[in-house]
Nucleic acid binder design. Structure first.
Lengths: 97, 97
DNA sequence: TTAAATATATCGGATGCCCAATATATCCTA
DNA sequence: TAGGATATATTGGGCATCCGATATATTTAA
C-alpha cells in the first residue's frame, strides 16, 4: 500500500501498453505520455523500456526503427493475447465501473 | 511477466476487497471464494489475511468477531477511499471493456 | 561542427504483492 | 471429550514491477 491511497495496482502496465498500442502504433515517448494522461504520473524510462523489451521478447509487440524513434505495434500474437487479457480483466472487475 | 500470459495484474487485491465489501459484508473465506470466482484461483491465507490486516490498519475496513468468523465491512473512510480509487481506476482503463 | 534536445536503453535497488508452510482458535460430530 | 473440520493469523521468502541514475544514439540548433 502506498501513499496514493490504497490499491497499488502495479502489474497493469504491460496490459495498458498492449491496449494503447491496439488503438494506434506509437513510439515509447508517446506511450509514456498517454499513460501519464490516464494515471497522472509519467512512467520513468526505467519502467517503460524494460516493459517494452519484455513484451517484444514474448513476441507480443514488434518494433520498426524510424530515425530517432522506434515505432511499436502489436503482433498477431499480441492481438490475441490482448483479447484474452481483456476477458480476464473484465471478469475480475465485473461491476466496477 | 508470468506464466499466465502477459499482464501480471498483481496489486489489485486490496482494491478488489474494498469493492467486494462494498457490496456486502463478508468474512475472510467468503471473500476468498468471491475472488476465486473472478480470477480463477483462490488467494492463499498468506495473501488474504495480511491484505485485510493492512486495510484495517489504514482504517478502511473494520472487523466484528462473530464466533468462529470475523465479519469485515467498510468504514466511512473505506467508502470514500473506494470511491476515489474507482475514479482513478476508470480513468486509467477508460475504453477497456 | 559543437552544443543542446530528444529518444532509447540498461543497471541496481526498493517496494510490496503473493504464496507455501505453519500455528492457533473455534465449532461440530461422534 | 476427544478428533476433525473450518476460520483466522503469522512468518519467511520469491519475484516482478517500478523508479532513479546513468549511458548511448540520433536529430536539431547555433
Amino acid at each position: 500500500m502506498r501513499g496514493d491511497g490504497c490499491c497499488d495496482m502495479r502489474g497493469f502496465l504491460s496490459f495498458l501498453i498492449l491496449f494503447l498500442l491496439s488503438k494506434r502504433k506509437m513510439h515509447g515517448q508517446e506511450l509514456a505520455e498517454e499513460i501519464e494522461k490516464r494515471k497522472g504520473s509519467k512512467p520513468s524510462p526505467g519502467t517503460i523500456y524494460p516493459a517494452l523489451k519484455s513484451l517484444r521478447e514474448y513476441g507480443l509487440i514488434e518494433e520498426r526503427k524510424e530515425g530517432k524513434t522506434v515505432i511499436y505495434s502489436l503482433t498477431e500474437r499480441g492481438k490475441k493475447e490482448l483479447k484474452t487479457a481483456k476477458q480476464r480483466f473484465c471478469r475480475i472487475f465485473l461491476g466496477v465501473y
